[in-house]
Design a binder for these strands. Structure first.
Length: 774
DNA sequence: GTAGGGTTAG
C-alpha cells in the first residue's frame, strides 16, 4: 500500500480547466436560443416592457374572436398607427404565440406581412416578421402531423423572402431532424444566413445527423468547427453530443474506431473542451473492454496533462482495465498519479486495489488495507467502506492462493459475523481449491459436504475444483465418480471439466478413456471450446496416434474452430516422429493458407527432425530460413544440431556451435546441451575436455544432473581416473543430486573391482544423510 | 470474487 493515497484531503482535483472566454459566451447564448419563448436575446428598448405588455394583451383580446370577425380598424390602430414605433419583434412574437392555433397565427402573420410593408424601417419590419413567423412555427410544432407542414412553411417563408431567425432555424432543424426528415433539416441549415450558423445550431445539426447514423456528414460539420480560424468553433455541448453518441453501444451508421474517437477527444482538447467525468469514464471503460488499454491509458494521460477534469471514477475504470490485463506496473503508476493529483480513492478503488494486491500475491498488504477500511476509526484516513462478500471472497481467495487456507477459513468465520455477509458458493470454491492445492483433498471434500449442509448450492466451478484436485493427485477414477455423482445432482460438466479429465487420462496413457470422455462431452451437448480439442490432439500426437489426431482435427473444424500455431506444432511434431513426411508438408502448407505464421518452435521441431534423420545440410538451410524470418534460434535449435554432430562423431563441429550459441546468439547452453557434449566427449575419449565442461558448468551456474554425472563416471571409469570420480561423488552429495540405478551400477562395478567399497558405502550413506536433512 | 488446458533438443 505504498502508492495509494490515503491522505485525507477534501480537495478532489486541480482547478477546473479554464474555458476560453468565447466558449463561455457561446454557451450563454446557446442557452437563450434554446428556450422557445425569447426570440430576441437583445431586444431594442424601443418600448417599455409594461407598454409592451398592455399592447400584447389588447391585441390578443381583439384577435380572440373568429378570424372573419376581426376588427381590422382597431387592429391597425393599435399596431401600425405610430409610424415611428412599429411593434417590436418581441411583441409580435408574443402576440402570435398566444393565438392558440397555427391557422389563426398564420392568418395574423399574413395580416402583419401585408401591413408592415409600409413601415419605414425595413430592417425592423423584417425582424418583426421573422419573429411572428417563428411563433407560427412553434404553434405548428405542437399540432399533429406537423412534420411536413413545418417544411411547407419554411418553403413559403423562403418564397416571400422572410428571413428565418435563430429561434425558427433551431426549431426547424431540430423538429425536422428528429422527425426523420434529415435531408430537409440539412436543407434548412444550408440555406441559412452564415451568421446564424453558430455553434449552437451546428450542434443541433450534428446531433440530428448522428442520431440517424449519418456519421460522416456529422464529422464534416464538426471538422469545420475544429478549424482554429472558424468563426463558430466547438464548445462543451458539441463535445457532449459527439461523445455520447459515438459511445452508444447501439449507435447507428458506421462504427467509429477507437482510434478515431481518441483522436476526436484530442481535437476537442485543443479547443479546451474535455469530456465530463461520466463520459471520460464511459470512454475508458469502452476502450478497456475492447482490450485497448493502451489507448485508454493515453486518453487519461492526455486529459490529465491538458488540464481536463479527472475524477476518481475515471481512474477506477482504467485501474479495472489495467488489472484485467495484469498490467500491475501501470496500475501503480496511475495510483501514484492519483495521489499526486489529490484524487481520493473511493470504495470502488479500494475493491480494485485489494483485488490487485491479492492477484500479485501481496495478501498482507491487502488485509492491512481491508482492516483500515473497515476499522472506522482514526487510522482510516477518511476512507471507510462496509466490506461486502465480494471483498471477503477476494481476500479469502488471495489467502488460499498463497497457501494460507487456514487463515482463509478463519476469515470466512469472521465474514459470518459481518452484517449482510454470508459465505456463498464462491467462498467455498476458493477454500476447496486452497486445500486441494496443498494436497489436502480430504479437507476439500469435507468443505464440499459442509457447504451442502449449509444449503449453499455447489456450482460447476465447485465440480471442476474438486475434479482438478483429484486429477492432480492421480485419483482419476475418483474424479470420474465425482463427475457422475454431480451429474446425477443436476450439475453437468463443461469444457473445463472435460479438458482436465482428458488431459489427465492422456498423461497416464489411457487414450481410450480420453477418447471416451471426448465422445461423452460431444454427445452431452455441453458447450466446447477449441482448447479441449487441442488437449486431445496433443495427447494423441504424444501417443503417436496420428490417425486419431487427424479425426479430432476434422471434428474441431466441423465445430467451427481452427488450429492455432501450437496445435500445428503439436501435429507437425507427431508427424515428424512417425516419419509421415507428406503430412508434415501438408501441415506447413495448411499453416500458410490459414495465415498461421510458424514460430521458432515450428522451426525447432523441423530442425530436430532433420538432425535426427542425419540431413544436416537441410537442417542448416531451415535454420537460415528461420533466421531470415526474424526468428531467433534457441537452446533447442542448437541442442538438436549439437546432438547431430555428436552422433556423427564430429565433436569439433559440435564444440564450435556450443561456443557460438552463447556468444553470438545469447542462447547460453543449459544442462541438456552440456549433457549431450559431455556424454559424447567421454565416449570419444576426450575425458579431459568433458571435465573442463564440468568446470564451465560450475562457473556459469548450470546445474549438472544425474545424467551429467553418469556420463562423467562412465568416461572416468574407462580411463580409470579414480580421484576425479571421488571428487564428483562428493559434489553429487553436496548438490543433493540423486544417483539412479545407472549411477549405482557403474560405481558398484568399478569401485568393487578396485577395492574401494568403503568409498562406495560412504557415498550411499552420504546421500541418505543429505536426503534426510533436505 | 471462484475452476482447466495443448508445442521443440539429451
Amino acid at each position: 500500500m505504498n502508492h495509494l493515497s490515503l491522505s485525507a484531503s477534501k480537495h478532489l482535483l486541480k482547478p477546473q480547466p479554464s474555458k476560453t472566454q468565447s466558449s463561455v459566451v457561446l454557451l450563454l447564448l446557446n442557452h437563450q436560443f434554446s428556450t422557445d419563448s425569447d426570440p430576441n436575446p437583445n431586444p431594442k428598448p424601443s418600448k417599455q416592457p409594461h407598454e409592451d405588455d398592455s399592447l400584447v394583451t389588447l391585441v390578443v383580446q381583439l384577435l380572440e374572436s373568429d378570424e372573419k370577425d376581426w376588427n381590422l380598424d382597431q387592429l391597425r390602430h393599435l399596431l401600425f398607427s405610430d409610424s415611428d414605433a412599429a411593434p417590436s419583434p418581441r411583441s409580435l412574437f408574443r402576440i402570435t404565440r398566444r393565438l392558440n392555433t397555427s391557422s389563426k397565427a398564420l392568418k395574423f402573420f399574413d395580416y402583419v406581412s401585408e401591413n408592415v410593408a409600409t413601415s419605414p424601417d425595413s430592417a425592423a419590419a423584417t425582424a418583426s416578421l421573422s419573429s411572428s413567423f417563428q411563433a407560427v412555427l412553434e404553434l405548428t410544432k405542437r399540432e399533429p402531423n406537423s412534420r411536413t407542414r413545418l417544411f411547407d412553411m419554411y418553403k413559403m417563408a423562403k418564397e416571400r423572402n422572410i428571413p428565418v431567425n435563430m429561434g425558427a432555424a433551431v426549431l426547424l432543424v431540430r423538429s425536422l431532424g428528429f422527425a426523420g426528415m434529415v435531408d430537409e433539416a440539412v436543407n434548412v441549415f444550408n440555406g441559412l444566413d452564415p451568421a446564424l450558423k453558430n455553434t449552437h445550431l451546428r450542434n443541433v445539426v450534428i446531433d440530428v445527423l448522428l442520431k440517424w447514423g449519418r456519421v460522416d456528414d456529422a464529422l464534416k460539420v464538426l471538422d469545420k468547427m475544429f478549424d482554429p480560424n472558424a468563426e463558430f468553433r466547438v464548445d462543451s455541448v458539441t463535445g457532449d453530443i459527439v461523445l455520447s453518441s459515438l459511445l452508444k453501444r447501439e449507435q447507428r451508421g458506421r462504427r467509429v474506431s477507437d482510434e478515431d474517437i481518441v483522436g476526436l477527444v484530442q481535437k476537442f482538447g485543443e479547443h479546451g473542451v474535455f469530456p465530463d467525468s461520466l463520459k471520460l469514464t464511459k470512454l475508458i471503460t469502452s476502450l478497456c473492454r475492447n482490450r485497448n488499454t493502451n489507448r485508454a491509458w493515453d486518453v487519461l494521460q492526455y486529459v490529465i496533462n491538458s488540464g481536463g477534469a479527472v475524477e476518481t471514477a475515471c481512474c477506477n475504470a482504467l485501474l479495472t482495465g489495467l488489472g484485467r490485463v495484469n498490467d500491475f506496473k501501470r496500475m501503480n503508476v496511475l495510483m501514484v498519479k492519483m495521489k499526486e493529483m489529490d484524487i481520493l480513492p473511493d470504495v470502488v478503488t479500494i475493491g480494485i486495489v485489494i483485488n490487485f494486491l491479492c492477484k500479485s500475491r501481496r495478501v498482507d498488504e491487502a488485509l492491512e488495507l481491508f482492516e483500515r477500511m473497515s476499522g472506522g476509526g482514526e487510522k482510516t484516513d477518511g476512507i471507510s467502506a462496509e466490506p461486502d462478500e465480494i471483498m471477503y471472497n477476494t481476500l479469502i481467495d488471495g489467502l488460499c492462493k498463497v497457501g494460507r487456507q487456514e487463515e482463509g477459513l478463519r476469515l470466512m468465520e469472521k465474514m459470518r459475523l459481518q452484517d449482510g455477509c454470508a459465505p456463498n458458493t464462491v467462498t467455498y470454491n476458493s477454500l476447496i481449491d486452497g486445500f486441494n492445492k496443498v494436497g489436502d483433498i480430504e479437507r476439500g471434500r469435507e468443505l464440499y459436504d459442509q457447504m451442502k449442509e449449509e444449503g449453499i448450492p455447489p456450482s460447476v466451478v465447485t465440480l471442476n475444483t474438486l475434479v482438478d484436485g483429484l486429477c492432480k493427485h492421480g485419483r482419476l477414477n475418483s474424479a470420474l465418480e465425482f463427475l457422475n455423482e454431480m451429474q446425477r445432482d443436476g450439475i453437468k460438466g463443461n469444457a473445463t471439466t472435460y479438458t482436465m479429465l482428458i488431459t489427465s487420462f492422456c498423461n497416464v496413457n489411457n487414450i481410450g478413456m480420453a477418447m471416451e470422455l471426448f465422445e461423452q462431452m460431444l454427445s452431452s451437448g455441453c458447450s466446447t471450446d477449441a482448447k479441449v480439442y487441442y488437449c486431445l490432439i496433443s495427447g494423441l500426437s504424444q501417443a503417436r496416434r496420428m490417425d486419431d489426431a487427424n479425426i479430432v482435427v476434422s471434428k474441431l473444424k466441423e465445430a467451427g474452430f481452427s488450429l492455432d500455431v501450437i496445435a500445428f506444432n503439436v501435429l507437425i511434431n507427431g508427424f515428424c516422429k512417425t516419419k509421415k513426411l507428406e503430412k508434415v508438408h501438408e501441415m506447413i502448407q495448411e499453416m500458410e493458407t490459414a495465415g498461421v505464421k510458424p514460430d521458432s518452435i515450428t522451426y525447432n521441431t523441423l530442425i530436430s527432425y532433420l538432425c535426427s534423420a542425419g540431413e544436416l545440410t537441410t537442417a542448416h538451410r531451415v535454420l537460415s530460413k528461420m533466421i531470415n524470418e526474424g526468428l531467433v534460434p534457441t537452446v533447442f535449435t542448437f541442442g538438436s544440431l549439437i546432438h547431430a554432430y555428436c552422433l556423427k562423431g564430429d565433436t569439433y563441429k559440435a564444440m564450435k556451435i556450443f561456443r557460438d550459441m552463447g556468444s553470438k546468439w545469447s542462447a547460453p547452453p543449459n544442462t541438456v546441451v552440456y549433457n549431450i557434449l559431455i556424454d559424447s566427449l567421454c565416449k570419444n575419449n576426450e575425458v579431459d575436455v568433458a571435465l573442463s565442461l564440468m568446470d564451465s558448468m560450475k562457473n556459469k551456474g548450470v546445474r549438472p544432473n544425474t545424467l551429467t554425472f553418469n556420463a562423467m563416471f562412465k568416461g572416468l571409469k574407462e580411463n580409470n581416473l579414480l580421484e576425479k570420480a571421488f571428487k564428483l561423488m562428493d559434489q553429487m552429495i553436496e548438490q543433493a543430486c540423486n544417483p539412479d540405478y545407472i549411477t549405482m551400477e557403474i560405481l558398484t562395478e568399478w569401485l568393487s573391482a578396485v577395492g574401494e567399497t568403503e568409498k562406495l558405502r560412504r557415498f550411499v550413506q552420504g546421500y541418505e544423510v543429505a536426503a534426510s536433512t533436505a
